[in-house]
């Protein structure tokens, strides 16, 4: 009996492995959505952080409200809101990939703005003063002294945020993008091998995330200012 069960389960895994190329092809959506969203969130987060450091109280208030607002939503709720809610309200058809990119960029820009802000606040104010004393203008002091320090401080948190985006992007399967999770769910519902399929998807994500964080450690060591 035991042997029969063993052979059967080996057959299960073989079946999942045969579907592996199709699942891996779904990773291109994962890569596209997470990389574009990260790039957009990096830029938007910078604007938000600048707003929060502004001289004008109104600009600071806008930055603060944006960050509080977007940190309250889950990616899933926000994607559904854009893909179904806003699309119906404006009577436009937003393709699911674009809806996911918009949702992930807007949400994560709030977190990235906070990462920039805390990195800026952690830079020793003496550094800026020293730079200005050596004759640099305020702008030069910011670009050549403060920014490199802040970038080094922010790097690990930014990489962590990229991993969050990468993982959150898997929810696009729920609105019909043929990403790895969508392909796996479809296949699993045909032959009831949910355990095998989802385990393989989980393993692929674990390997990717592990490689990214190891790569990040290497880069961090390289970037470390003397």
């Amino acid at each position: 009996m035991n042997e029969i069960a063993n052979v059967a389960s080996q057959g299960h895994w073989a079946e999942v492995l045969r579907a592996l190329p199709l699942m891996l092809a779904g990773l291109k959506y994962t890569a596209l959505i997470s990389i574009v969203s990260m790039a957009a969130a990096l830029v938007l987060g910078f604007v938000l952080a600048a707003l929060r450091f502004s001289r004008f109280a109104a600009a600071r208030a806008i930055g603060f409200i944006y960050v509080q607002l977007f940190r309250a939503f889950s990616t899933y709720v926000y994607i559904l809101f854009i893909y179904f809610g806003l699309a119906a309200f404006f009577k436009i058809d937003i393709p699911p990939v674009q809806a996911a990119i918009v949702a992930l960029s807007l949400l994560n820009s709030a977190y990235i703005a906070e990462i920039y802000r805390s990195a800026m606040m952690n830079v020793d104010p003496g550094l800026r003063e020293a730079a200005i004393c050596t004759g640099l203008t305020r702008r030069q002091a910011f670009i050549h002294a403060v920014l490199p320090q802040a970038a080094f401080q922010a790097f690990p948190s930014l990489l962590n945020q990229f991993i969050v985006i990468l993982r959150d992007s898997s929810i696009v399967g729920a609105i019909g993008v043929a990403d790895i999770m969508f392909v796996a769910s479809k296949a699993a519902s045909v032959n009831y091998l949910q355990f095998e399929y989802y385990s393989v998807v989980a393993a692929i994500f674990v390997v990717i995330v592990f490689c990214i964080s190891r790569l990040g450690d290497l880069v961090e060591r390289r970037l470390k200012p003397p």
Binding site: R167, I171, M181, S199, A202, F205, V206
Partner: peptide, 13 residues
């Protein structure tokens, strides 16, 4: 392992 798994995948798993 848990750091690498998306919540959506974990729930369905």
């Amino acid at each position: 392992i848990i750091r690498g798994i998306p919540l959506y995948v974990l729930i369905l798993w």
